[in-house]
Amino acid sequence: MPPRAYLKGETMALRIGRCLLRELRKAKKLSQVELAKRVRDLGVDLSDTTVSEFERNERICTNILTLKGISRVLGCHIDDLYEFPDS
Rank of each mutant, 00 (worst) to 15 (best):
Y82L: 09
H77K: 14
H77F: 03
L7H: 13
G43C: 06
K37V: 02
L35V: 08
I78K: 00
L21I: 06
R59I: 03
F84C: 06
D45N: 15
L67D: 10
L20M: 10
I60Q: 06
V44G: 09
K28E: 05
I16T: 05
K68P: 01
K8I: 14
R18A: 08
L30F: 03
V44I: 15
T11H: 11
E23Q: 03
K37S: 03
I60N: 10
G43Y: 08
R40N: 11
V73E: 11
R38K: 14
T49H: 13
L67T: 11
S87H: 10
I60H: 06
M12A: 08
D41Y: 07
S71F: 09
F54W: 11
M1V: 06
Y6E: 12
L30C: 02
S52R: 13
L20V: 00
L20W: 00
F54M: 12
K29W: 00
D48R: 15
S52K: 07
L81P: 04
V51H: 09
A5L: 14
G69S: 08
S31A: 04
V44Q: 11
E55M: 10
L7E: 12
E23T: 01
D86P: 09
R15P: 00
E55D: 09
F54K: 07
I64T: 07
N57Y: 06
R15T: 08
R25D: 01
T62N: 13
P3N: 04
I64W: 04
S31R: 06
R40E: 15
L21C: 04
L35I: 04
D41T: 07
D80M: 02
G9I: 12
F84T: 11
G69K: 07
S71N: 03
L42G: 08
R38D: 06
V33N: 09
R59F: 15
N63P: 04
G9R: 13
D45K: 15
T62W: 11
L81F: 03
R22L: 05
L21R: 01
V39D: 10
S87G: 07
I70Q: 10
C19P: 01
T49W: 11
S71H: 05
G17C: 04
L46Q: 05
T66L: 12
E23C: 00
L14C: 03
D86R: 09
A5P: 06
N57C: 14
S52Q: 11
S87L: 09
P85E: 15
V73G: 10
I78N: 00
N57I: 03
